[in-house]
Design a protein around this nucleic acid. Structure first.
Length: 658
DNA sequence: ACTTAGACTTGGAATAATATTG
DNA sequence: CAATATTATTCCAAGTCTAAGT
């Protein structure tokens, strides 16, 4: 690491080639053969597997690097030599990154996130290029300045029935009003355009559609060029060096300006999200390393910081919600991996003292102290229904709630029956709607029910049920039971616990014939977790029609089977008849389908139908459930990997790697 | 003690890449 | 081999939680 070019900023090494030396297992980013050289230990082909705990995490993070080689070995037995797929430049770099065993690397000192950090800052989209297509005002084309046109184009790009705009409560109107407020300001008081209603953006919309069409119709050669450009950008700015190893950066491209798209009934939807320039961006990098060079001609970064207690590389302020945004390392980086590992470790720690925690709130459900009683009741809900804690929100955001912010109006008690309807909009305005049989959950459910009922009494509809409880106080209480325990940990813990319980036993799984059947069993457990966490997705029009088509296909296959069965029966009958009316005539039916042949074909159809049915049922059940979130954030990979090992399922069937 | 800014995880949808099928 | 289905990745909003400020 003493090469002189080591001190060259990453951003300057922009036309380098990346070479992966197979024999030595060395990854180099070399400048035409000489210069910087990053050595990395290569992931060993077969994992040592001794360090039980982490080895599972490690398996999850293992890359196809191993695959490539195993593919090679197999081909040795085969006569034909299968050439490994040629890798793109980006893939080669990322294979090198994946070879780093972060789980075996030492942690930075307490309180520090890193010791050295070098990266390339952010990239920016080119400035707006006017297209000159006019907005019609009262039927008359109006010429606009480039900036005015840019905003008009943002609006024109939004289809009439665009996402989130059909939310009941007139989101389309809010969207338009917010856009008009901002655009009107930019147009100025004396502008010819005075009212939104007379504006017609359809010419711009058509222009944009044409551009989209052209892009879609691009030739293969053009697509290759586009891909090359993207790869160049990725190689130039997409990686960081943290504590002397290469890491992938997550979102190094500056968000382009646009109209803000809040979820649900967001009061700010349609507000102009401004273009952010380099001088509004702060950079965080190691003091001993050269800071990134701003690639925008004649521009520079706003501020250079050297804060080794945080993990962000760049940050800027966003004008719509007044929030900070960050560039961080990618989800599969060592930093995120370690933090992920800690999260699941904490959940395991909760497993060790869950009895104590539950005993605590079970006891307090009957407390005379109002605060304690509310606290215990919220804990019952968080632990049992996997609700989020639910902090307070401002008027400037969509009205969504979590446990602490639940209001009387979200509960519906019925005179008959013990079920309670709980209905509210949670994170991302996703609907939570369940009929809850409190007493059915555990022996404390009845008490929780009584408490909530009592807390709702004598309160107005829009008042909070647990007005004494705030996330901070709830978390403070939890931390007093177990250090570091917060409400969020319960979701992780209960998700992991559910996965563990729902995965079928190995003895049962190992009997399954195909990997496919095993994967269905895993997905089933995954789905139960997703349902617990209320991870939903909307059924797109395309998905709905796809489902219909599949149902039709199933029906067709069934018909074919019926036809085949009929043919089979006809054949047997005729054979029997032939036998009866002497052998002499039997040759007449020699062309009839052979009995065995037909019955084999029926078997094939039966198999096919079975497969289609399973497939369809699976899809139908997954239609509104999103498995991705729970898989990415809640399922402890160690549980999944252990299950795979026991059930003889290759882990890469569950976890793909970039 | 209370409020707010900052930092980081979680989340669904859009989009790109890849696999499968007709 | 093109059309289509499936899967992975990107995007960026929206949560949680800690720490700093007052």
């Amino acid at each position: 690491m003493s090469d002189s070019s080591d001190d060259l900023p990453l951003s300057r090494l922009n036309h380098q080639t990346v070479v992966r030396n197979r024999a030595e297992g060395v990854v180099q980013i070399s400048d035409k053969g000489k210069g910087t050289r990053k050595k990395m230990r290569r992931a060993s082909c077969h994992d040592s597997g001794s360090d039980g705990e982490i080895s599972a995490m490690k398996r999850k993070k293992m890359k196809s690097a191993g695959n490539l080689r195993s593919g090679h070995n197999e081909s040795a037995g085969n006569k034909k030599v299968i050439k490994p797929k040629e890798l793109m430049r980006v893939q080669r770099v990322e294979q090198g990154i994946a070879a780093f065993e972060w789980w075996n690397s030492p942690d930075p000192p307490e309180g520090k996130a890193w010791q050295t950090l070098e990266h390339c800052g952010m990239t920016f989209e080119p400035q707006y290029k006017p297209h000159g297509v006019a907005v019609l005002y009262d039927g008359v084309p109006i010429s606009l300045t480039p900036y005015q046109e840019e905003l008009a184009t943002f609006y024109a790009a939004m289809p009439e029935d665009g996402p989130q705009l059909n939310v009941s409560g007139g989101q389309r109107e809010i969207f338009q009003r917010n856009f008009w407020d901002d655009w009107h300001k930019v147009l100025g008081k004396s502008h010819a355009i005075k009212s939104f209603d007379k504006c017609d953006f359809s010419d711009i919309s058509k222009h944009l559609d044409r551009l989209k069409f052209v892009k879609r119709a691009a030739s293969d050669a053009e697509k290759v060029v586009a891909r090359e450009l993207r790869d160049d950008c990725q190689l130039r700015s997409g990686y960081a060096i943290l504590d002397d190893h290469l890491e992938k950066v997550g979102n190094f491209r500056m968000e382009p300006p646009s109209l803000f798209r809040g979820r649900g009934k967001h009061p700010k939807t349609g507000v102009v999200k401004l273009r952010v320039e380099p001088d509004q961006v702060s950079i965080n990098c190691g003091a001993s390393r050269p800071p990134p060079i701003c690639l925008e001609l004649g521009r520079s970064w706003g501020e250079i910081k050297h804060d080794d207690t945080v993990t962000w590389l760049s940050t800027w302020h966003e004008n719509v919600m007044q929030s900070n945004k960050y560039v961080m390392l990618a989800a599969n980086s060592s930093l995120k991996g370690k933090s992920d590992f800690k999260k699941f470790q904490k959940a395991m720690q909760l497993k060790g003292c869950i009895e104590r925690v539950r005993h605590d709130y079970h006891k307090n459900l009957k407390s005379k102290d109002r605060h304690l009683k509310q606290q215990a009741t919220t804990m019952w809900l968080i632990d049992t229904l996997a609700l989020r804690v639910g902090g307070e929100k401002s008027e400037e955001e969509a009205d969504t709630v979590g446990c602490c912010s639940l209001r009387v109006e979200h509960f519906t008690f019925h005179k008959t029956g013990k079920d309670v309807d709980l209905e509210f909009l949670g994170k991302d305005s996703i609907l939570f709607k369940q009929s809850i049989d409190f007493a059915g959950f555990d022996e404390h459910g009845q008490q929780a029910y009584d408490n909530i009922r009592e807390m709702c009494r004598s309160k107005k509809k829009n008042e909070q049920v647990f007005e004494l409880i705030e996330p901070t106080s709830l978390n403070a209480h939890l931390s007093s039971i177990m250090p570091g325990l917060t409400a969020k940990v319960f979701r992780t813990y209960n998700a992991s616990e559910t996965l563990q319980n729902q995965l079928p036993d190995a003895e049962h799984v190992i009997e399954m014939r195909s990997i496919g059947d095993k994967l269905i069993a895993y997905n089933e457990a995954n789905r139960i977790v997703a349902i617990l966490c209320n991870h939903q997705r909307t059924v797109s029009a395309a998905a709905a029609t796809g489902l219909e088509a599949q149902a039709e296909k199933l029906e067709q296959t069934q018909e074919q089977k019926i036809a085949a069965t009929a043919a089979y029966e006809a054949a047997t009958i005729k054979k029997r008849e032939a036998n009866k009316s002497k052998q002499a005539e039997a040759h007449r039916f020699s062309k009839l389908p052979d009995e065995k042949d037909v019955s084999r074909r029926i078997d094939i159809w039966t198999e096919k139908i079975k497969k289609l049915e399973i497939d369809l049922r699976n899809k139908e059940e997954n239609k509104e459930v999103s498995l991705g979130t729970s898989k990415a954030n809640y399922l402890d990979p160690r549980i999944s990997v252990a299950w795979c090992k026991r059930c003889d399922v290759p882990i890469e069937k569950l976890f793909s790697r970039p």
